[in-house]
Simulated assay, not measured.
Amino acid sequence: MTDALVDRIYEASLVPEHWPCLLEDLACLSGSVGGVMFATDTGTLTRWTAAATTRQMVVAYTENSDVPPNDRPRFLRRRNYLGFLREIDFLPPGHLDHDPIQLWLRTWGLGWQCGTMIPMPSGELVIMSFDRPYERGPHAASLMPRLDALRPHLARAAMIAARLGLERARTAVATLEALGLPAAVLDGAGRALAVNGLVAGTPEMLTGAYGRLRLNHPPADALLREALGAGWIGGAVRSVALPSSGTRSASIVHVLPLCREAQDVLGGATLVVLTHLKADANIPDAALLPGLFDLTPREADIVVGLAAGHSLHDSAAAAGLTVATARSYLESIFRKTGTHRQGQLVALVKGRSGIQGEARPDPA
């Protein structure tokens, strides 16, 4: 059984969709009913995969804003133990008496966990955690050596998968450089894993502390951070607009998950590609706007109307919308494009310098 598991561990490092079934078998080995593996540098589950038996629970945890914060990774990291531990082994005495995570797990019929933490070269941590029903009591200490015997193989498999992901990242940015596009691959904290040579000469992209890549426009940079925090989940693609200024032209930063499968926790990262907008007095194409700015078709209609010089009232009428609905769409458009006024929005989509000076109310 152990030899077969070792073989499957290394297979999963190359074929990430094998992880869920492997986690289920490892759960059985430890007297658990399911498990999860996630990569993080903050304790947040941004990239994860889980056994089918606990997947619904993990989805609920990641998507429910009412879930209590989980401080277990912090205590596990503090122990710095190269093996599997039960929560009763690494949490402070009396902590479980008021632990909100255990109370939340009990709503799912669970309540006891064991896990391990594997440091990665990128600075991230890979955490594997296995869940046991509350009614059965804590994991038996005698079962931890079974998982410990496999941990060196799990650690090596994680390193292999991460290395493959890094090579894939380097290939991606090199290919985009040949196409004349500045590009970088970032981890969840915004640190650059791979950057092509065009980024250094791009005023839109700057390197900050700890190797983090940032955009040279605070509202756009805030949108990039938001995309890095949530864009990987579900494989969503985002676009972030940067208006023109005295040192840069208007541009779009496309944010794409760089992963082969949804289960590619260890090789997953985010590809950031910059494209410039050509200054143009023409009205933007409604078919092009959704791809550039993540707009809905109705939002694109509003932008086209405003760019044509129409008021919001007339743009709404042309799109078959009420003014109240159009205003709601406009607020969403502002958020997606990082603009605050209609004049700034029109200047952005036409690739021209934004309007400077006092903010004035835009005509309705």
Results as ranks from 00 to 15, higher is better:
R78Y: 09
L186W: 15
A141F: 13
S315A: 14
W104K: 13
G43A: 00
T275H: 15
M205P: 03
L22K: 05
T54F: 10
S30I: 00
G109Q: 13
G267F: 06
A324E: 05
E11P: 08
A50K: 01
V265A: 02
A140P: 11
L22H: 08
I252S: 00
Q344L: 03
L330Q: 02
A178M: 15
A200C: 10
F130P: 05
E11F: 12
L228E: 13
S32M: 00
V255A: 06
H340A: 08
L5R: 09
R8L: 04
H95I: 04
V255E: 02
R298W: 09
D7Q: 11
A192Y: 15
D3V: 11
V265Q: 04
K278D: 11
V349C: 01
Y10W: 14
P119E: 07
P290Q: 01
V59D: 06
V304A: 02
S65V: 10
Y134H: 15
D264T: 04
L105N: 05
L45H: 06
W108K: 07
A222D: 14
S328T: 08
R214V: 06
V67E: 10
R163T: 12
T202N: 12
D280K: 01
G201R: 07
S245A: 14
P182G: 08
T337M: 03
A157G: 07
M1C: 09
L274Q: 12
Q102L: 09
D131T: 10
R260L: 11
T107W: 11
A140E: 15
P20T: 02
A169P: 04
L26R: 03
D301P: 01
P243W: 04
P20L: 03
P121W: 02
G137W: 10
A158T: 06
S65I: 04
W19D: 08
G180N: 13
H254R: 15
G188W: 05
G137N: 12
G137H: 06
P152C: 01
L85R: 05
L223Y: 02
G246I: 10
L14T: 14
L198V: 14
T53F: 12
Q263I: 00
V346D: 00
R156N: 06
V349G: 01
R146V: 05
P133I: 08
P290K: 00
T275C: 07
R191N: 11
M159N: 04
A308M: 08
A183N: 15
T62Q: 03
L345E: 00
L215C: 06
L164H: 12
V58W: 06
R260K: 09
